[in-house]
């Protein structure tokens, strides 16, 4: 144990150090429906430090979901490798939790059963843990409801609670808020940042919303339109903790202009 962790563990509000670095090494993914090659992701290299919040920004169909699927272990890259904490991944794992675009709570389980499912499958359910997490996500009292009885925003929060129950080092989020209305979306963005601040998990968050990408991230990876390549990685040196009032600051607007410029340039190139 090094000195710095020693000191950190003695302070109550100090962050817990956890694993969760992700290294994507020249990953390409080619789909081959009916002999016609479709290159979804081409030669993407990306390093994410443990505890870092990275957003991936790109137009629909640019392969950003495919990139997430490769990191989650749902699909195998055609070439290249994904490393987590220095080791090549082999399929999905509980250390890499996923929040899906449309809600994937299991409809035949109550909210509480959904939140408990991860620990239950790993033989480590704690009584009252689900309620505690639901409360943290502002969902107290929904334990016995079925997912279909909750609104979209509540379902998405319950899905995050389900993920937290499993305590993954890495959270992979595939446009989780894209189907929500603007107000709910903003509320959930702030909530997610709070959760991230508290727990120091690594987050890879996919979105096509420029403001969302900048507001949340330490770094934004801008992808090119099909095949998906890394166009540019932008550092977001904005102060933390953040709240939505900062989206109107000059710094933020300048970053936004820069990203929009990149995207427009990309769109123009794609048209030609």
């Amino acid at each position: 144990m090094t000195d710095s962790t020693q000191i950190a563990s003695n302070e109550t509000d100090a962050p817990t150090y956890r694993d969760g670095s992700v290294h994507v090494e020249s990953v390409s993914k080619v789909y081959d429906p009916d002999g016609e090659h479709v290159v979804a992701v081409e030669d993407v290299t990306l390093h994410i430090e443990a505890g870092e919040f990275v957003t991936v920004l790109g137009p629909s169909g640019c392969g950003k979901s495919t990139l997430l699927e490769c990191i989650a272990g749902f699909t195998e890259p055609t070439s290249g490798n994904v490393y987590v904490d220095g080791e090549v991944i082999d399929g999905p794992s509980a250390e890499r939790g996923v929040v899906f675009q449309s809600n994937r709570l299991l409809p035949w389980m109550t909210i509480e059963e959904n939140v408990d499912i991860g620990p239950k499958m790993r033989g480590a359910v704690e009584d009252g843990r689900a309620s505690q997490l639901l409360e943290r996500m502002g969902l107290e009292g929904t334990e016995n409801a079925y997912p279909s009885e909750l609104s979209g925003g509540m379902q998405q929060r319950a899905e995050i609670a389900r993920l937290l129950a499993n305590d993954p080092d890495i959270m992979l989020m595939d446009e989780p808020f894209s189907a929500l209305d603007a107000l709910t979306k903003e509320m959930l963005q702030e909530m997610l940042l709070e959760v991230w601040d508290d727990d120091n998990r690594t987050v890879l968050f996919i979105t096509h919303d420029v403001e969302e990408a900048l507001f949340l991230a330490d770094r934004v990876l801008v992808m090119t339109a099909g095949p998906g390549r890394v166009k540019e990685i932008i550092d977001v040196d904005l102060e933390r903790p953040r709240d939505l009032s900062m989206t109107t600051t000059e710094e933020f607007t300048a970053l936004k202009d820069r990203v929009l410029h990149l995207i427009h340039e990309e769109a123009r190139e794609a048209m030609e």
Binding site: A72, G73, F74, G91, P92, S93, A94, R96, G97, V98, F100, S102, R104, L105, L106, M109, I117, G118, M121, R122, R162, L163, N166, L172
Partner: peptide
């Protein structure tokens, strides 16, 4: 997505069968 959700929560093949 249901299958993937359970896989990424650490579910085994048997868990998939049982829970999904």
């Amino acid at each position: 997505e249901y299958v993937r959700a359970v896989q990424s929560l650490g579910g085994s093949r048997w868990d998939l069968f049982r829970h999904v």
